[in-house]
């Protein structure tokens, strides 16, 4: 096994760390992310591509390293996002639940403190979020939405660029490592 692989997959040799946060963080950070998405694009229109609630979901999921916690956090943030959108309740909820679950599952095998991996995870989960939302909208609601793949890839890249420093900032809010 190479050194790079060992760095990325410490779970194979060492025990996984579970990061903990203050209970208020689980409420205030997602709330801030949702409010950012609601109000900031009104003044800075090009920032509407930022999917901060998804980034926060992925962050909490990978830091908690518990699929159940990831799924519940994803569902809560997704439903809150749904309640301020024009879609039926549950669309973002289902997508975010799956994103949280899979992110937490992946984090059990990889070193999620690594910025490169965080970048890749953010990129992957943004695309997953967009594609799965498109599938749900077509399949469940019968909406004929366009999936502009090149645009989504660019947005995924931009979101990942933002996600890495954002995750580093959120790392400062951790209170305990076990």
């Amino acid at each position: 096994m190479s050194e790079f692989t060992e760095n990325l997959i410490p779970g194979l040799t060492t025990k996984s760390k579970i990061s903990r946060f203050r209970p208020a963080s689980y409420v205030l950070i997602p709330l801030a992310a949702i409010l950012f998405q609601v109000y900031v694009p009104r003044f800075v229109e090009y920032l509407s591509y930022l999917e901060l609630p998804l980034m926060v979901t992925v962050y909490f999921a990978i830091m908690r390293r518990q699929p159940v916690a990831g799924a519940i956090i994803g569902a809560a943030i997704g439903l809150a996002q749904d309640s301020l959108s024009s879609h039926p309740l549950g669309m973002f909820g289902i997508v975010m639940t799956l994103a949280g679950y899979f992110a937490a599952s992946i984090s059990q095998r990889f070193d999620v403190e690594n910025s490169a991996l965080r970048f890749i995870l953010s990129f992957f989960f943004f695309l997953f979020h967009q594609v799965f939302f498109w599938v749900l909208a077509r399949g469940l609601l019968g909406q004929n939405l366009d999936l502009l793949v090149p645009q989504k890839i660019i947005f995924a890249f931009l979101n990942s660029v933002v996600a890495v420093p954002l995750f580093l900032i959120l790392d400062r809010l951790k209170i305990e490592d076990r």
């Binding site: 569902a75 309740l89 549950g90 289902i94 639940t97 799956l98 679950y101 469940l140």
Partner: peptide
Amino acid sequence: RNLSVLLLLIVAQLLLLAYQVKAGEDV
């Protein structure tokens, strides 16, 4: 356990969606 919780959450939200689509009403 993990998979059960995931399925529970997904099914609950699917039911919520189905109710809204079927009844044409919002929660």
